[in-house]
Design a protein around this nucleic acid. Structure first.
Lengths: 180, 180
DNA sequence: CCGGCCATGTAACGCGTTACATGATTAG
DNA sequence: CTAATCATGTAACGCGTTACATGGCCGG
């Protein structure tokens, strides 16, 4: 149900076409709840069929026509209902940990290489989150209140990536210390 | 493919029935790659059909019969092949973040309550991981080498839960600081 | 007697991913 | 000329979850 919640929340902020929503998605909620355009369109169809969103077809010149979706009263109620439901924490699900678990079977250099690669990837993601957080700081103070909660989610992203970086470094250090 | 990798890795350590594997799973790899008995049995059937594991039916008295699976040469080769493949980092996927993202629509107390609940859950999980790490310390030094890699994965669990705890506390503090 | 453990499975459904498909405009 | 952007969709497949199903043994 989180995709539905995410879509309704996006539409609550601002109406938009599936395409536009997807791009907004990928630069915000998408960091901690991924989706594809196929799923998004399907969800929008579903929401429309249930009467939770309104749809307006807009003709454009030079660009394909689009369908602009917006939240209606029923959709707002549904959003509030979903927000009131308790959610369980998501669980860790990372292929790298499965590989490291079985690391004994691999030559140490292969493990090291993979850890270095992942550390670099996590550094990149961390930089992305930091960049986004900085861009929030440029929002004028009177409008910053609107972005209070989205900003908080980014803070988790930063802590999350830092934890992974720390771990990659720790494990690399431990491997180096091992008797050969 | 991570389930397959995890199953092969478990069988590499020690053969066992689907049921026994599941329990071992839930106290080790299962922390960062979840599965259910249904999926496990399916995977074992598949591995057997592909000739990657051997299966021995064992009759027991007082208990139902069981099928003990063990890794064969082909399975070992497959395991090494999967281990050699590069894996991508898993992405964050947590409903709580979706909710917090849309937090504006909720009364602050509801957000606080949910954060407190999640903080308690993460504290529990952290305690579990810490307990498991301690039990590793009791393994005699000469056999500890075998558990080097599994122990490393637990360290990530600890860092991960600590990051979440930190975040819950940070957000709660920030909410408290806000102008009402 | 009831619930939990041991042990294995089938079936239905939904979510997620990948591939396939179209077609105009614009920037390099 | 090529690639990207805008814009929407269908189809197939596999992974994951939940429910359903069975049945003996053991401890409280």
């Amino acid at each position: 149900m989180s995709l539905r919640l995410a879509v309704l929340a996006m539409l609550d902020v601002e109406p938009g076409s599936g395409y536009a929503l997807l791009r907004r998605f990928q630069n915000s909620v998408g960091f901690f709840w991924q989706t594809t355009h196929q799923q998004l369109y399907k969800e929008l169809h579903g929401l429309h069929a249930e009467g939770l969103v309104d749809c307006l077809e807009v003709e454009q010149d030079g660009k394909p026509d689009k369908k602009v979706y917006s939240l209606n009263a029923a959709g707002g109620a549904e959003l509030d209902r979903l927000l009131a439901e308790a959610a369980n924490p998501g669980k860790i699900r990372d292929p790298l940990l499965v590989k490291v678990f079985a690391g004994r079977r691999l030559p140490p250099d292969a493990v090291k290489a993979e850890l270095l690669r992942h550390r670099a990837l996590h550094e990149q993601t961390l930089a992305t989150y930091r960049g986004l957080m900085q861009s929030f700081e440029m929002v004028p103070a009177e409008r910053r209140e609107r972005y209070f909660y989205p900003l908080q989610t980014l803070r988790l992203g930063v802590l999350y990536e830092q934890a992974w970086l720390q771990w990659c470094s720790d494990v690399l250090a431990d491997i180096a210390k091992r008797p050969v």
